[in-house]
Nucleic acid binder design. Structure first.
Length: 479
RNA sequence: GGGGCCGUGGCCUAGCCUGGAAGGGCGCCGGCAUUGGGAGCCGGAGGUCGCGGGUUCGAAUCCCGCCGGCCCCA
């Protein structure tokens, strides 16, 4: 018995480190802070995530393009709020070889400025609109806060951004709503629970009129922003002169939106669905949907008949069979770790009866079915639904409202008096929300809610300061 | 923004305080054993002790700087 036991998910920091390494997802030991190496299995999952988002955006009529990583200073700094928001965390290239560049270049932290300069050239009249494009790229942000694998990185490698420009506000708003709906579908199909909030002004995207964000909750109880949709209005179109002359001789500017996700989605999938045995992947992003495990019996007594049967099944269903000489137990262990949704066990019994033993990763227990009853899509759907259900249940247990701030804080502690976190809707005015922001993360208002509902989540400082917070909380005069 | 801890074969780590031939576990390789929930036995290979500088007869160990990781406070 050795000591390097697989950590339980309740020890989340250790668990995630173990899973990222053992399932070959990512390695953050590279000697540049906040930059990670993506390993083969992580890359396969990532490509699944990208493919899913591509399909959803494509259905919405948003086409894929690619813009350069480097942006000239003069272009990068054209929009006032944007540059105020991003200058502190932008990498700059000042030299080419030994020569100092005549104009420094920014390593894109996001692509608005690179793209909108081109929008400007392309738009001469309203007929040139709409422009609706997307890009999958890596972007760089010089994070000053502590970096964390897949959550807070300096090279964001799975940035999927969309940018749209329209002639009228109504069209832009319609697209804005459609983008939110697209993200709902995206997260729903991965079984990731979320809340949608309108961010307070101080937490808007730099240069946006309004930011709507999707937040989920990590097993630690901390909220995680996993997607944002921005209504840019005319801020960028004015800065970049995306405009045309009207018949009345006036100048009209385009209305824009942009929205994006990052590898935080991958972290959410791992962190939210994973269990003590490892990953549990939704079928849409699982590199292996199913695996056949043959069981050869003592001394390989039934090796021949079982191998023949499992190969037949493999051929018939298009599912790989693991014929390596490992014991069945060690194979279960491996495919559990990798989060393969469907496991098919076949031994002598199954071969004799023409049956299969099915084990779904998200469910306890096995079922025996007849060979001709096998329906992979149905099983994947069952597993996905169970994953979603469990995730939703845990999520709902960590949120609530509307309630008073005091009640929300009480609920953030579990029965052991430890801080548990979550996302809560509380009664508060804007002014009070600012006051709360001293103690919790104020996410903003639920979309379409009453003015006096504010959404809060666990902040860093609450986590380990039980005594202080219990001191602070009763002192609040909650409405 | 402030404070603390850490970096030793692929991975986890002992050794550091009190300087004097680098130790263990996992993994890997070879052999044996093992097939309805893994991690058993025997043997073997593998190390710029994060990087750079300093102190010293001698540095993983002490000092300085840098890089990287983790934690806490504001």
């Amino acid at each position: 018995m050795y000591e390097t036991m697989r950590p339980k998910k309740s020890e989340f920091t250790k668990w995630i480190e173990y899973v990222l390494r053992e399932a070959r997802i990512a390695d953050y030991t590279y000697p540049v802070k906040g930059c990670g190496i993506r390993l083969p299995y992580g890359q396969k999952i990532r490509l699944g995530v990208i493919e899913l988002m591509r399909r959803i955006l494509e259905e919405n009529g948003v086409e894929e393009v690619y813009f350069p990583t480097l942006i000239p200073k003069s272009v990068f700094e054209r929009e006032k709020e944007f540059i105020e928001g991003f200058s502190g965390e932008t990498y700059r290239v000042t030299h080419g070889g030994k020569e100092k560049l005549s104009e420094p270049l920014a390593l894109r932290p996001t692509s608005e400025t690179a793209m909108y300069r081109v929008f400007s050239k392309r738009v001469k009249n309203p007929g040139d609109l709409p422009i609706r494009i997307r890009q999958v790229a890596n972007v760089f942000r010089y994070e000053t806060k502590q970096t964390r694998p897949l959550i807070r990185v300096r090279e964001i490698t799975t940035f999927i951004e969309a940018h749209e420009a329209f002639a009228t506000r109504d069209e832009a708003y319609e697209a804005f709503v459609k983008a939110i709906e697209a993200y709902k579908r995206f997260f729903d199909s991965l079984g990731i629970p979320y809340v949608i909030s309108v961010r307070p002004d101080r937490d808007k995207f730099a240069g946006a009129d309004m930011t709507v964000a999707f937040d989920t909750v990590m097993p630690t109880g901390r909220s995680l922003q996993i997607g944002t949709v921005h209504f840019l209005g005319q801020n960028f179109s004015k800065a970049f002169n995306i405009s045309w002359g009207t018949p009345e001789g006036k100048k009209e500017y385009a209305r824009q939106i942009c929205y994006g996700i990052s590898e935080r989605v991958i972290m959410s999938i791992i962190a939210i669905h994973g269990d003590d045995y490892g990953l549990r992947l939704p079928s849409l992003v699982a590199p292996k949907k199913a695996i056949i495990i043959p069981i050869f019996g003592k001394k390989g007594a039934y090796k021949e008949v079982v191998e023949k049967y499992s190969l037949e099944l493999s051929e018939e269903f298009g599912i790989p069979v693991d014929l390596t000489p490992e014991t069945p137990g060690s194979k279960y262990y491996l495919y559990d770790l990798l989060g393969v949704p469907v496991r098919i066990e076949v031994g002598k019994k199954e071969a004799d009866e023409g049956t299969l033993t099915i084990k779904l990763r998200a469910m306890k227990g096995r079922i025996r079915i007849k060979r001709d009853e096998f329906d992979l899509d149905k099983l994947l759907k069952m597993n996905d639904e169970e994953l979603s259900r469990q995730a939703r249940e845990r999520f709902e247990g960590m949120r609530g409202g509307p309630m008073s701030f005091r009640e929300a804080i009480d609920r953030m502690y579990d029965e052991y008096g430890r801080f548990r976190g979550g996302i809560y809707d509380v009664y508060a005015t804007e002014k009070e929300a600012r006051k709360y922001s001293e103690y919790v993360d104020v996410l903003g208002k639920p979309r379409g809610s009453d003015e006096n509902i504010v959404r809060i989540a666990r902040s860093y400082r609450f986590l380990y300061t039980t005594k202080r917070s219990s001191f602070f909380v009763p002192s609040f005069n909650t409405p």
